[in-house]
Design a protein around this nucleic acid. Structure first.
Lengths: 109, 109
DNA sequence: TTAAATACCTTGCAATACAAGATATACTTT
DNA sequence: AAAGTATATCTTGTATTGCAAGGTATTTAA
């Protein structure tokens, strides 16, 4: 109850969409990218199931490519549906985050 | 997958703490207050179990008082532990929300 | 007395982050 | 060759939590 686990629910998927939109990227690299944006180190048990789920929902699509330093990488790109979902995510985020900021700054109505 | 349900996880408790800190308040009023801050209408099935949980954890304490227009009201106040938890919540929120904003504004590193 | 607004609670479900453990490839070191 | 290390992905099971649905009780107004 004292970490950010619960707080990440419902925002990680949107953040992944936003990063993938910037350019084709694979899971292992994504985890590092999230850290560079300020997220604490995220478990692979979080990233991979999430990517698979989003692919199954048709938000992203994947292609396998050989790597020079390990097993094949699974590169993801946004689908049309994924772009739409990203737009809706941003709307949700702005509504919720501004509400929280209102509460913390004590500016009701 | 297109509402803010998941996004509220891990932030509602902190928001309740912040509002209760402003002054003694009861559950039914709290729901209205949250709306005035920008949250969409929250179910009583969300508010009451959450208040009971926080009371059980010792973050808030309650006293019953008669009402002029209905059954007794349960007024909540912050405990010392609740104040500490609020401070920690604010820290978590600032870390996470700034990370999300970084991702959405594409400002890595 | 019937209705409506107020006020609180309980049960069960669904969604999701994550720990733990497994598998496989390429390169480097011994 | 063999072993180790970094890279890269996946699966299973668990804990937490928002919320719908349904229930109870009190006060005032119609």
């Amino acid at each position: 109850m004292s970490d950010t686990t619960q707080m990440l629910k419902g925002i990680l998927d949107g953040c992944l969409l936003a990063i993938i939109k910037e350019g084709e990227i694979y899971g292992y690299e994504l985890a590092a990218k999230l850290e560079s944006y300020g997220f604490r180190s995220l478990s692979e048990g979080t990233i991979y199931p999430l990517l698979l789920r989003m692919q199954k929902e048709g938000l992203i699509s994947a292609t396998l490519r050989k790597s020079t330093a390990g097993p094949k990488r699974k590169y993801y790109t946004l689908t049309e549906k994924g772009e739409q979902e990203l737009v809706m995510f941003i709307g949700r985020w702005e509504q919720v985050s501004s509400s929280v900021d209102n509460v913390l700054n004590k500016r009701g109505i």
